[in-house]
């Protein structure tokens, strides 16, 4: 669906699998360029969702980033080695997160 116009220069992990990326680009762009369109499942129906607006407004591109859930993938600049997982359903929050 999407074609890269610039070369890749680093690698991130998506659900444990390596994906070629370009440092500084939005994480959502990296995933879309790799052909990934389902970033998460909704808490209500379980349906798959992916980015709509690519500008921080729609909250449809939520992922789990380095263990933090409900992070907007379109707002995160990529760097080498980022560990990203799809966001499955509702976010669980814990009191201990407060210190991080």
């Amino acid at each position: 669906m999407f074609r890269r116009t610039e070369p890749t220069d680093c690698t991130i992990l998506w659900n444990g699998a390596p994906i070629a990326a370009r440092a500084g680009e939005p994480l959502a762009a990296t995933l879309l360029a790799a052909g990934i369109t389902a970033f998460r499942t909704t808490p209500v129906s379980g349906a798959e969702r992916g980015p709509l607006c690519m500008m921080g407004a729609c909250f449809d591109c939520l992922v789990e980033l380095e263990g933090r859930s409900n992070v907007q993938a379109c707002m995160v600049p990529v760097r080498d080695g980022l560990r990203v997982r799809s966001q499955q359903g509702a976010r669980a929050v814990h009191a201990e997160d407060a210190s991080t």
Binding site: P43, V44, N70, G89, A90, R91, V93
Partner: peptide
């Protein structure tokens, strides 16, 4: 708030979690 995994099973005065989370 954003939708969250279930944490409050009963509604309370001024605080409730909807079935959507």
């Amino acid at each position: 708030t954003e939708r969250l995994a279930p944490m409050l099973p009963l509604p309370a005065s001024a605080l409730r979690q909807t079935s959507d989370g």
